[in-house]
Simulated scan of single mutants.
Amino acid sequence: MILLISDLHLEEERPDITRAFLDLLATRARSAQALYILGDFFEAWIGDDAMTPFQRSICQALRELSDSGTAIFLMHGNRDFMLGQAFCKAAGCTLLEDPSVVQFNGESVLLMHGDSLCTRDVGYMKLRRWLRNPLTLFILRHLPLGSRQQLARKLRSESRTQTRMKANDIVDVTPEEIPRIMQQYGVKTLIHGHTHRPAIHKLQLGEQAARRIVLGDWDKQGWALQVDEQGFALAPFGFAPPPQLPAPDPIPSHTPSHK
């Protein structure tokens, strides 16, 4: 059994998502041959040298899963494209190229984060090319920590503002890109995240039946794609409520004594 997830956007301000992820690692993922995380694992990542205690705890949880025998594969998203080999080595996971072709049940499957499919968002595509340029990445990684933090906040703020202003079809994948990329890599199954629109789309590539599986983002609920002998099953799951703290001992009433 193989599990695929994406778009958790982990951050300290969302402990419900963190609890759900750690629960997944302790339960279903322990029985999995492999766990694939297809980008936007963290809400933001400004460098392996700037890990916070929260991010280190996530790294340690991944390492424990890896040590238990589950292979972990991680792909960059548009929020955490600066994740590097230092994090992956510490977490016991393998960094995947975007896109990558893997074998599931003897079938070649194309894995992507999905942002590169949104070609109608011309402004974003220009920004993406600039940010992923090796020279830009080198400069970003060598900026002072404070400058990187300030830049990350600015990019996140601008991204939210731009997304709200853009039409839905602009921030979704370009339909013509799907058959083009699938034919380029010679696959009949494409799996990606990014758009936050979970679904299994049936396609036709020439005379061949094909499918595009879109992973869901983790917000009000989690999403996971399970691949096993039965095929591909995409399903949501609810978040467990926070643990209840024990009720404090009642304060004994005090009745003054009269002498």
Results as ranks from 00 to 15, higher is better:
residue 29 A to T: 05
residue 24 L to E: 05
residue 85 Q to F: 09
residue 209 A to L: 12
residue 62 L to M: 15
residue 77 G to I: 12
residue 200 I to Y: 02
residue 69 G to S: 13
residue 37 I to P: 02
residue 205 L to G: 11
residue 75 M to F: 04
residue 34 A to C: 08
residue 19 R to C: 05
residue 213 I to R: 03
residue 91 A to M: 09
residue 20 A to T: 05
residue 161 T to I: 15
residue 128 R to P: 07
residue 245 L to F: 07
residue 98 D to E: 07
residue 243 P to Q: 04
residue 170 I to P: 03
residue 75 M to D: 01
residue 234 L to F: 10
residue 82 M to A: 13
residue 108 S to N: 11
residue 188 K to V: 07
residue 233 A to F: 08
residue 34 A to F: 08
residue 254 H to Y: 14
residue 113 H to C: 05
residue 206 G to K: 08
residue 159 S to Y: 02
residue 8 L to I: 09
residue 56 R to S: 05
residue 237 F to I: 05
residue 32 A to W: 07
residue 114 G to Y: 04
residue 95 L to I: 12
residue 194 H to T: 03
residue 127 L to S: 08
residue 251 I to A: 14
residue 199 A to W: 00
residue 83 L to I: 15
residue 34 A to R: 11
residue 104 F to N: 06
residue 123 G to C: 06
residue 38 L to P: 09
residue 6 S to R: 09
residue 194 H to F: 04
residue 65 L to Y: 07
residue 64 E to L: 13
residue 190 L to Y: 06
residue 107 E to Q: 15
residue 210 A to K: 11
residue 62 L to H: 12
residue 20 A to W: 02
residue 128 R to Y: 06
residue 204 Q to S: 15
residue 98 D to G: 11
residue 134 P to V: 06
residue 24 L to Q: 10
residue 162 Q to A: 15
residue 17 I to M: 04
residue 139 I to K: 08
residue 79 R to Q: 12
residue 232 F to N: 04
residue 144 P to C: 06
residue 101 V to D: 01
residue 127 L to H: 09
residue 53 P to C: 12
residue 259 K to N: 14
residue 78 N to I: 00
residue 22 L to F: 02
residue 34 A to N: 08
residue 245 L to V: 09
residue 58 I to R: 02
residue 102 V to D: 01
residue 152 A to K: 12
residue 5 I to M: 13
residue 180 R to G: 00
residue 193 G to M: 08
residue 92 G to F: 14
residue 259 K to G: 15
residue 142 H to I: 02
residue 18 T to F: 00
residue 125 M to C: 03
residue 191 I to N: 04
residue 107 E to W: 04
residue 119 T to K: 03
residue 150 Q to L: 14
residue 116 S to D: 11
residue 185 Y to C: 03
residue 213 I to N: 04
residue 49 D to Q: 03
residue 39 G to V: 06
residue 168 N to L: 13
residue 113 H to K: 02
residue 210 A to V: 12
residue 102 V to R: 07
residue 221 Q to K: 15
residue 10 L to A: 00
residue 44 A to W: 01
residue 235 A to K: 14
residue 75 M to Y: 04
residue 60 Q to N: 07
residue 65 L to P: 10
residue 224 A to H: 10
residue 142 H to G: 01
residue 35 L to S: 09
residue 55 Q to P: 02
residue 112 M to S: 09
residue 68 S to K: 10
residue 87 F to K: 05
residue 225 L to D: 04
residue 237 F to W: 10
residue 15 P to T: 03
residue 36 Y to N: 08
residue 154 K to Y: 08
residue 247 A to K: 07
residue 151 L to E: 08
residue 41 F to W: 14
residue 226 Q to D: 01
residue 15 P to A: 05
residue 151 L to Q: 13
residue 240 A to P: 03
